[in-house]
């Protein structure tokens, strides 16, 4: 557990030392802020639902940029050989890297908490609905990070890792758009597999067991796959 924490600390500290992470933070917050004011101004509604939708779409683009280095760089520079010749398990390495990245993204999500504060100072937003939305976007980001780390473990190239993660995340994100072309069980499976089916419930204030199970099991599956692939090096 301590080693997981050590690796997580090194990973998150690495983000704060990297210019790319600050660029991502700045771009994300600038876009979020712009859309927050546009959405509130146009909708005239004390709700963050559409802001969460924008954050979700942005995370599909931004998270692969954060995760592409996690394992690919360790492979490229040979530090993976260092990690795996210390008494550290593959599980500790993957979980450490996962938690380090999650910490960085959690800070980004936490900063957007100010939107609720701004809304609350001018109107009466529903606290429960906002909480569900924040929980949803945070879990979705956590899921995307697990996908990104898995893709980073498949290759020694940052670029390829990012492309693979984009392929998986775009697939999961746009899957719902193909719903109308299918019928019966295939349509049901596709609807369940699409990440938007589940995130949408959180954004409108519904915390459902099925959606928690989807995101939770998604995180677990991709972390386990990352561990398995690292063991099979």
């Amino acid at each position: 557990m301590l080693k997981t924490f050590d690796i997580a600390m090194k990973e998150s500290a690495g983000y704060f030392r990297s210019p790319l992470a600050y660029v991502i933070l700045t771009v994300a917050l600038t876009v979020f802020n712009a859309f927050f004011f546009l959405i509130i101004d146009q909708n005239r509604e004390a709700a963050l639902t559409d802001v969460f939708r924008v954050m979700e779409f942005m995370f599909v683009f931004l998270i692969p940029l954060l995760t592409m280095k996690t394992l690919a760089e360790e492979k490229q520079t040979g530090t993976l050989e260092f990690l795996l010749t210390t008494p550290t398990t593959e599980g500790q390495i993957i979980c450490g890297k996962y938690l380090g990245t999650l910490f960085f993204v959690s800070i980004l999500v936490a900063i957007t908490g100010i939107y609720y504060g701004i809304l609350a100072s001018f109107a009466s937003p529903e606290a429960g609905m906002a909480f569900a939305g924040y929980l949803g976007i945070w879990l979705e980001a956590a899921f995307f990070i697990a996908v990104g780390i898995f893709c980073s473990g498949l290759t020694g190239s940052h670029l390829l890792a990012a492309i693979l993660a984009y392929a998986v995340l775009f697939g999961l994100y746009f899957l719902k758009s193909f719903n109308s072309y299918l019928h019966g069980p295939a349509e049901t499976v596709l609807r369940y597999a699409a990440v938007m089916t589940h995130s949408e419930n959180f954004f409108v204030g519904i915390i459902a067991a099925a959606d928690l199970a989807y995101l939770g099991s998604g995180i677990l599956i991709f972390l386990l796959l990352s561990i398995i692939f690292l063991r099979k090096r």
């Binding site: 050590d6 690796i7 690495g14 520079t77 530090t79 990690l83 010749t85």
Partner: peptide, 25 residues
């Protein structure tokens, strides 16, 4: 173990890296 290319993290200081190695070991 010292591999052919020393496995180092360029963004860490020497001290930080050695403490990290000590904890992992």
């Amino acid at each position: 173990y010292l591999p052919e290319n020393p496995p180092l993290y360029p963004a860490l200081t020497v001290g930080q890296y050695l403490y990290f190695a000590a904890r992992l070991k």
